[in-house]
Structure formats: structure tokens, C-alpha cells
Design a protein around this nucleic acid. Structure first.
Lengths: 344, 344
DNA sequence: TATATTTGTTGGATCGATCTAATTTACAGG
DNA sequence: CCTGTAAATTAGATCGATCCAACAAATATA
């Protein structure tokens, strides 16, 4: 069909006023008599009018679109961040579009370019692994605010919204220490991300506070996945002076280790303490349920959205930093609570 | 900063040609001498030019944006569909934006309106529960193709891409029958979605083929969640002539039931057979690993994307229907394979 | 009554890229 | 050297909403 689209001019004719009046009425200007406004609204409805944002954006320089670039949407952790963000933007009347980069900096660059062509008002991004420090240069140069969420790229001038990874890891370690553990391992994640660096630093800090010497032999690096957790279990619980407790880079690794332990006839929470990181929704439902550090991705998403809304209005946005709380959620896998003691 | 954006006119001046030449060069017209084209490209790069799609769309009626409206992005099943879609669209040079409706028809209507205002070329939608049949009327009326993925709304004139839910459920039932089961229950999901209706119909069909009478007392309705699965376990395994096997509406319910069984000292695959639906990534990793019906959400997403790409070009797009395969994946939870027999 | 002020409405230029029709340039064949 | 054809380029109108300056009408103030 592709029928010719209805324009404000047609509404004007039908309502017996001018284009200008229609435009003003549409955007709720106080200059228009309320009766006129009603006529215009009626005519628009009758004609099936659809507002043309492209045309409007042509004059307004920036649209009401906020872009969101997510490294991995199939990971519920990041999906929740996106959803939290979107909820806030939506209720502020901003449209948001979400794009997925699948951890590819190349794809990320492509997506950011396309978004800039659409004239986004701001960008919230969970940078892909290996993102270059100048990835947001073009956006920042044209005065478009950029917020990095969850991860931050060293040397970029964009704002940051992240959880307190360092403190979270330290909390986990001191909890394990309070349960009597001295040989505490750390597993999963690669050195290239800021998140890994921070969580590892918190782990070391926690050990130091407890007066426990750091043993590099207890740090295991690898992909932040369940498969890695399952595969590395043997290594973690083996060796001469093996660990009795483990803090993992994230919940996926922790859940993998819980399964891995079972293959050796061991059970997390009974024979070995496991603490995860992130508190994904599965953590509460797993058996045994997972003790973990909650970072509230939805809440961080909401924060990021509020920050971008503020910055979009600003004349000259300066980089800002927000560090969200990290809370220890004690469940079964650390051994502090017997299995089935109460609802997870 | 918000420096004035660079336009084609400025490129034209720098390259010593006219606006028209720049425009033609940019869109790769064969009319332009390759040397001129090079000059233009150079000037654009030097000035840090960013293409303004809003301006272009003003003349072209439709943008190169495909909208995707997803009922629940935090559900990895739907997230994967979105990602599959996006990959195909991306490689076809189309921009896609994803929005989340959180199962709210009101929010969905809002999102669709905003997308139409942006001038999307097509829409792929997993309709929210309770979507009205006329939800896509405005889009279809202006000739914008709409594809419903995973779910379909009765009475809407949009195309459809869904898995073969009916056949999948029948496959599951006949597998359970082949393992010797005669009392097979069905649990989870509400009647309001087409998916539930189809899966239930397949379940009944499977029973019929095996010559087993349908027993309404073995059908349990409830939210398609893990919590529901855990909570309804008692009811499912109780009663006078209890079920010995269970097909669930989706994997979430199945995983919940597996946990629920454990609370009664029973184990899926040993004392009770459980078959899920969807094959989410967790199904393979769970302990016991979950026998389920794979519907390949990424593959369906890719199909939907290909379909929309084809339709965007068409003059008068007619509603189409694609029914994807559903495969039985045999793992541990149905009891066909001993636990730990081989890699999941 | 004349003038100032407020309130409501409108013409017309504008945003940046596109596209048609027109124009210029290049070059062959006579 | 001219004409005809092909190749390359360009002027100018156009898309639809916005917004300023201008204007008309109604009301208040001198």
C-alpha cells in the first residue's frame, strides 16, 4: 500500500488553521487556544497522522533517542542493565535503541557510527572487550555524552557507572575468612578488563586486611563462563596445599565450579566454599543456592539512564563517575547456611 | 562543545565540487568519476563528516531501520532471538533497534508508535501477552511489513515465524512413551498464548498416537517460571494415580520441577522423567542435564530477519508464515541416559 | 479615544540530503 | 571544424516540522 504519509499541512487544512498552529498545538505550546488545540488533535486522529521525527530532528540538531550498546545481550546480567536503563528512559519520554556487539570492537564501531548517523542524543555503552580508548572520540567531539556502564576503558573521556567491584570482592573474602578459611582462591576472568582488575584488587585487599599472604598460585585465569568453571575445578581443588574456599570472577564460573565439584563427589557449601559475583537471577534458584556479591544491574542501568538524561541537557558535559554499592548475599554455597534451612 | 555539524555543502566546498556531486559520490553512483569520488571521500574524512540520516529519510519516506520489539529481553530465550535477528540485519547493512516491552501491551503500543515516528522500514515483534489483534494496524496501513516471532496474535494480518510447537510436544510425548511411561503430565503456561495452545495440542496429539487417553487432571496451568515449577511439584507427583513423567511448557518450569523433586528426595531422570521445551543454554549445563525440545531461537531470529529484508523491498507485502523445526534433545532428565554417562 | 499590552495565529525561511532536469565537458565520426 | 552522443557535473526544488518575526484581535491602561 505505502500510502502517502499524512503531514501537518493536511491537518492544518482540515482544522482550518495554519501549519504553524498545528506544530505549536502538537508540542503543547501555551500560546494556542485550548479549543484550537482540540480541533487540531481531532483532525490528526481522523487522518491517522504519524509524527515524523526525521523532519523534526532536521531542525533540532539532536533527536530524543538515546543509544545503548551492549557487549552481550544474551547474558542476562547485561540484559538486565539494558532493561533498567530502558525503563527510566521510556518514562522520561525518550526513545532508546539497543544494539548488541557480541564482544566485537569492530561491530561496536559500526554500531556507534550508525547511531551517530541517526543523531542520538547520548550513548550508554558496555564496551566490548578490547575496545580502543578513542572509540567514542567522534561522539564526544560533537558534544554527545557517553556513559560507560559496568566496564570502563582506560583513557577515554567518557563518564562511568560501575559497581564497587573492589569493595564487593573484599566483602566476600572477609566473609570467607570469618567462616574460618585461610586458603582462598580466585578464579575466572582475564586481565584485559577493568572489572577483572578491580575484583582481583579487592580480593587481594581482603586477604591483606585478614593478614593472609597473597599466593599467586591461587589465582586462576580463564573465560568468565560456566564451562571454564567446570573445567578448572580439578586444578582449583588439587595441588599440595589446596584452597578450601573460592571467590569467582562471576556467577557463571561459580555455578560451573559447583557442578564440577559434584563430579568429584564434593558439594559446594558442605566440602568447599564458593562465592560468586553479580547475583544473576539463577544464583538464588541453583541447588545449592549461590552465595554471591549483588551488584544490581537494573539499578546501575537506571543510574546510567538518569545520568544521561541530565547530561543531554547540559551545555558542556564533564565526565562523571558513579560507583554503585555491592552487597554480600549469603546463601548456601559458602557453607554459612545449611542447605534447605530456609527459602533461598 | 556541540560544534556545528559538518554538512555535504562543506565537503563540496573543500573538494571543489557541488552538493549534488558529493551526494552522488557518497551513495556510490556510477555517474561520478572515480577521481572525484576519491577527492570527496578525502574531504569528508578530513572534516570528520557524519552522515545525517534524518535528512536523508525526509526524502526517502522509509529509513533503513528495522525495529524489534521484544516482550522480555531478560529472558535469554527471547534475547537470543533478538541477537540472531540483529546479526542478519547488521550484515545486510540495516540498522536495527531493539526495545523491550516487559510483557505490557500498553508499553508495546507506545514503543511501536515511537518506532513508527522514526520511520522504521519494518518491524519484528514478539508480542506481549494480551496484545490486541489491531496492535499493528497503523503500521500495516502505511505498508510497513510486520513479522510476529515466536508468538502469534489471532486475527492480525502480520506474518509469522514460529517453531513447530505442536510437533515438538508430540515428539517429547512419544519419546516418553517409548521409555515406558503412560501417565504423562503437562505443566506450566497459561491458555492465553498461541504457544501454550500449540504445545498442549501437540501433547494431546502425542498421547492419541500412543493410544493413551487424555486426562485433564494431568494438565497443570501456571506462570512459565522456575518458581512455578518448584511450587507445583508436590501437586504434580501427588494424587491417587500420579504421573511418572512430565512435559513442561518451557525449560524454566522443567528446571524448577527438577529442584522441586529434590526437596522430596526424588531425582529427575532416576525417579521421575522430565522433558523441557526450548533448550535454553542452561538446559545442557544443569545437573541433571535437561532433556528438551530445541527450537533454535537464534535460527528463528535469522529467518525473521531474512523475511523482513525480503518484504521491505516488496511492493505489496502479503502475510507469510514460516514454521521452524523442533528437535528432541535427549539428555539425562528423562532417564534415557544415565547421569554422567558422557558429556552433556 | 488613543495607546500599550496581552493573547492567538501565521508566513516564510530553515535544517541537510536527494533527485530530476538541465547544463557543461569530452570525444568520436564525418 | 562541426555535430551528435556519451559522460560528468550542477542548480534548484523538494521532503515535513520548527520557529522567528510579523501581524491581527482582544483587552487593559492612560
Amino acid at each position: 500500500m505505502a500510502r502517502q504519509s499524512v503531514t501537518m499541512l493536511e491537518i492544518a487544512e482540515r482544522a482550518g488553521v495554519s501549519r504553524s498552529t498545528v506544530s505549536l498545538a502538537m508540542q503543547g505550546s501555551g500560546l494556542i487556544r485550548s479549543e484550537t488545540r482540540r480541533h487540531v488533535a481531532e483532525a490528526a486522529r481522523a487522518l491517522g497522522y504519524v509524527y515524523n521525527r526525521s523532519a523534526a530532528n532536521l531542525r533540532k540538531a539532536h533527536s530524543n533517542i538515546v543509544g545503548m550498546v551492549i557487549n552481550d545481550l544474551t547474558n542476562p546480567f547485561f540484559a538486565e542493565l539494558a532493561v533498567g536503563c530502558e525503563r527510566v528512559l521510556q518514562s522520561a519520554g525518550q526513545m532508546s535503541f539497543i544494539a548488541n556487539t557480541a564482544e566485537s570492537p569492530v561491530r561496536q564501531a559500526e554500531v556507534i557510527r550508525l547511531m551517530q548517523e541517526q543523531g542520538i542524543a547520548g550513548l550508554i555503552v558496555c564496551p566490548a572487550r578490547g575496545t580502543a580508548p578513542d572509540a567514542f572520540k567522534s561522539l564526544l567531539a560533537s558534544g554527545i555524552p557517553v556513559i560507560q556502564a559496568m566496564r570502563q576503558i582506560e583513557g577515554s573521556r567518557a563518564s562511568v557507572v560501575v559497581p564497587d567491584n573492589r569493595r564487593g570482592a573484599a566483602l566476600a573474602v572477609s566473609h570467607l575468612v570469618s567462616l574460618g578459611h585461610r586458603r582462598i582462591a580466585f578464579a575466572g576472568g582475564f586481565g584485559e578488563t577493568s572489572v577483572h582488575a578491580d575484583r582481583l584488587a579487592g580480593y587481594r585487599g581482603g586477604l591483606e586486611v585478614a593478614g593472609i599472604a597473597f599466593d599467586p598460585g591461587l589465582v586462576f585465569r580463564g573465560p568468565p563462563t560456566r564451562d571454564y568453571g567446570a573445567a578448572s575445578t580439578a586444578e582449583i581443588i588439587g595441588g599440595g596445599d589446596p584452597a578450601t574456599a573460592l571467590l569467582t570472577f562471576n556467577d557463571a564460573v561459580a555455578l560451573g565450579v559447583c557442578n564440577g565439584l559434584r563430579r568429584f563427589g564434593r558439594e559446594a557449601g558442605r566440602d568447599f566454599a564458593v562465592v560468586g559475583f553479580d547475583d544473576v537471577s539463577e544464583a538464588a534458584h541453583a541447588v545449592p543456592s549461590l552465595t554471591t556479591i549483588a551488584v544490581d544491574p537494573q539499578g546501575l542501568g537506571e543510574r546510567a539512564a538518569q545520568m544521561i538524561l541530565r547530561k543531554v541537557g547540559e551545555e558542556r558535559p564533564n565526565p562523571e563517575e558513579y560507583i554503585g554499592a555491592a552487597r554480600l548475599i549469603i546463601r548456601e554455597s559458602c557453607g554459612a547456611r545449611a542447605r534447605g534451612t530456609s527459602k533461598p
